[in-house]
Design a binder for these strands. Structure first.
Lengths: 128, 128
DNA sequence: CATTTGCTTTACGTAAAAGTCAATTCTGAC
DNA sequence: GTCAGAATTGACTTTTACGTAAAGCAAATG
């Protein structure tokens, strides 16, 4: 496990631009350390980037991603806050379950569309 | 099954604005019929709206949604085009499978976060 | 030492997906 | 027929998530 990654290493690994990583930093999603002015990303920063991009692929906005990330941070010490956090987690879970239903539905419809194609090909006398 | 829905009926059902539905029409995603100038949405239009919003929740852009919708339309008559369509379907499926992996990963991490909360609460002597 | 290479900041630009507002026009209930 | 409430078009605005371009620093390399 490497100690530090440079910004361009991460851009290559994840296929994003430096602008994007700096933008996420401006938005308070990541906090790489500095050597002079240069950013150094720790493994934990790298993992955060991975989580951010996962959220992005799922269509979450920056502020939604921020919420999710804050959930992952060490749980607070106070009971009331812990309950609030658990509520938040449940909310996010609901959202993700909705997305999962949407996803499965869409996958099924794609399956049906493919079947229709295959049938149509069969009608046309093409061996599959 | 109703013959036609008005635009406001659909906005209420789906929780979107009229602007949104007209925007989707401008983008060529739906084509409600007209009585005079008034839009009338058929059940098939309504179903399309449902599919569009599903795509939106999954983070697809309008043009990606357009592609998906075009897949659902009656398969073309020509063999070459059918093969192209099947390829497109597979592409979309890959995308959706990636999203599913992202989704499951995120759900698991939320589970772990909740467990941490519950543990923390137990440490603090709170009965769950 | 000069220059290339990589990183930085600052600032302005932009595409997508609607929101909002104004001015009309329709239309269905009485 | 009229009048309030819907619906329409068109134009302008906003927000999000970056892209892009300019200009400068810093270290390594020939």
């Amino acid at each position: 496990m490497r100690d530090y990654y440079t910004i361009t290493e991460l851009t290559r690994e994840f296929g994003v631009s430096t602008r994007t990583l700096r933008f996420y930093e401006d938005e308070g999603l990541i906090h790489p350390v500095r050597r002079g002015r240069t950013r150094l990303y720790r493994p934990s920063d790298r993992h955060l980037v991975r989580q951010i991009l996962r959220g992005r692929r799922l269509g979450f906005s920056i502020s939604e991603i921020r919420e999710i990330i804050q959930i992952y941070k060490t749980p607070p010490g106070e009971v009331g806050q812990l309950h609030l956090l658990i509520e938040k987690i449940d909310e996010k879970r609901q959202t993700l379950r909705q997305k999962r239903r949407d996803l499965e539905d869409t996958l099924h419809e794609l399956d049906r569309a493919e079947e229709a194609c295959v049938e149509r090909l069969a009608e046309l006398g093409v061996k599959t």
